[in-house]
Nucleic acid binder design. Structure first.
Lengths: 326, 326
DNA sequence: ATGAAAGCGCTAACAG
DNA sequence: CTGTTAGCGCTTTCAT
């Protein structure tokens, strides 16, 4: 009985031949250790959880895909939960999941910093796209991506940029706006803002006219769903963009690349972020790292100019005018 | 001890006042029953699993969203697993998950019918988009959707339709093709096929030229990712579609609605399908249905003509010609 | 209506 | 190196 257990969990401590026999018999009988019973005694479940604010958002699909892939490789199963953009629900989910998992990847948490900082040491938590002192974090370098976007726009001669803001309390939104402002300052560009709007296609559609009324020549949208919404509405209104395509969206949703005309995006390595986050979690669970250190892993975001691999034309080459009706 | 247990699981069998006391104390102490221990004795886990062939496919995101939403309402947690388009992996996943869940929603299974029919009675399985005698199924009426699509095309005067086929062994693909053929026969239309191709954007891009070379005037793509890929490539080639927009894609991926020009799609109620599937699972788990009956729930797919709510113009109104270069 | 006791399937500590 | 024993936290007879 104990030998059976050892054959599975501590192969070294059992004679080679015995072990082989046990494993063979197990295979014949179709025996698989009962994880619940094992968990009862070891206190570990072999599961990890992912909590996202909105399962309807393609961004989190990419995260989930990354998490799932890496977790399975390490023989962990993954629980998904959707906090539905509510801090209270998210908090409840953490409580509910915590008994069933060894660790949680908390994506773009809507919880206040104090609440996050006060999370119990179990289960182990890794934050994605959110930075709180003392908690391990994987995040994407939004500011860097924004800098590239503004460099690009400035090179095209744009001087007045409008930012279509995402969820008010979203940390990512603040990061992006901050990055944008810093980069704009360096180039002497003006930054206007619109919003906040929900990070969805429809928001972009609704925001399009307000965007036009600002007189800006370039748009940076919180994410590419919003950006595509804006483009879609502009097309519907038969608005041309004489200074060249100047709508840029953040996020890595491959589908956004499909729109016509091609949308310029700041691509975040989202799937990779998901993988990196579980990896950090597993490192901790298997004590390859000190539990609960607050180190941060940052993944680069990069500007993807669709439809041309050439660098932007020099500033003198084109004079952007306002967006105007055809 | 036993009373505590009863207060939670069988409130009726304990005196009102006692129960209240227990629940109060539990709340004060932050006590939550340990699901693993409970599962050890009851044999039930309170979890359900979802297995999909590809977590990267937006179609399954919608399913997952539906599953997750409904499952949480019923206080079940959900495991996700990605079979990566492999029958072998899928089989392994079923085995691995089965000990940790009470039931599994098996989406667009890649497993052969015999294997599906031979699944153990535990865990309970509900099939989504796959029909095998004896197993409970939720499926989308692809044939009905295809019929609507062909009615639409025929009304526009098209007589030669090319179907861009999805994964060869995909049951959904067979359903769609079969539905298309039946509808085409009724209208006296000719059906050509291309493929199989992977159900992705890039496949559409690659298939576009072959589509042109068939001389067909209308395209039905396995799914909208492929359809959008085709449209994208046609735009790149500066191909006009003189007979009107005649590319139609299957599936319900809201993002596809964003493309310009608007894509006509056969919309499947995917989120609803996910919800319906878990619901069927829960019904069975809670013995509201006979275990393992093979009843089928069918959800309608409907043609969505983007950009116009008007019915298609009468056949005489326009004479489709071949797609041609501008 | 409640308490006592057995045991779900496993692993950990301890003998042998 | 392997067998024996206890007990993880709960539910479920069986008594009371």
């Amino acid at each position: 009985m104990a030998t059976v257990s050892r054959s599975f969990t501590a192969p070294q401590t059992v004679r080679e031949t015995t072990r082989r026999g046990v494993l063979q018999a197990a295979a014949d009988l179709g025996y698989q250790p009962n994880r619940a019973a094992r968990g009862l005694i070891t206190g570990r479940t072999g599961n990890v959880g992912v909590i996202v604010p909105d399962l309807g958002n393609p961004y989190f699909h990419a995260v989930l895909q990354g998490v799932q892939t890496r977790a399975r490789e390490a023989d962990y199963a993954v629980f998904v939960a959707d906090g539905r953009e509510s801090a209270a629900e998210e908090d409840a989910l953490i409580g509910a999941l915590s008994k069933q998992v060894d660790g949680i990847v908390l994506c773009s948490s809507r919880l206040p910093p104090a609440r996050l900082a006060a999370l119990e040491p179990t289960p182990t938590v890794v934050l994605l796209n959110r930075r709180v002192p003392g908690l391990p974090t994987v995040n994407v370098d939004s500011a860097g991506g924004m800098r590239q976007a503004v460099d690009h726009l400035a090179a095209l001669g744009h001087v007045r940029i409008v930012f279509v803001s995402g969820p008010r309390h979203s940390w990512s939104n603040q990061q992006r706006l901050r990055g944008l402002r810093a980069a704009a300052r360096a180039h002497g560009c003006e930054v206007l803002t619109i919003g906040p709007v929900a990070p969805q296609f429809d928001s972009g559609v609704e925001a399009a006219e307000r965007v036009l009324s600002t007189g800006a020549t370039a748009v940076l949208a919180y994410n590419d769903l919003v950006a595509v919404g804006i483009l879609s509405r502009l097309a519907e209104l038969k608005i041309t963009v004489p200074g060249g395509l100047s709508v840029i969206g953040f996020d890595d949703i491959p589908l956004a690349a499909m729109v016509t005309p091609p949308l310029t995006t700041v691509a975040a390595p989202t799937v990779l972020a998901g993988q990196t986050a579980v990896q950090a979690l597993l490192d901790r669970l298997e004590h390859r790292r000190q539990p609960l250190t607050g180190e941060v892993r940052t993944l680069p975001a990069t500007l993807v100019v669709r439809g041309s691999t050439a660098p932007p034309a020099p500033a003198a080459a084109r004079t952007p005018r306002s967006l105007q009706r055809a």
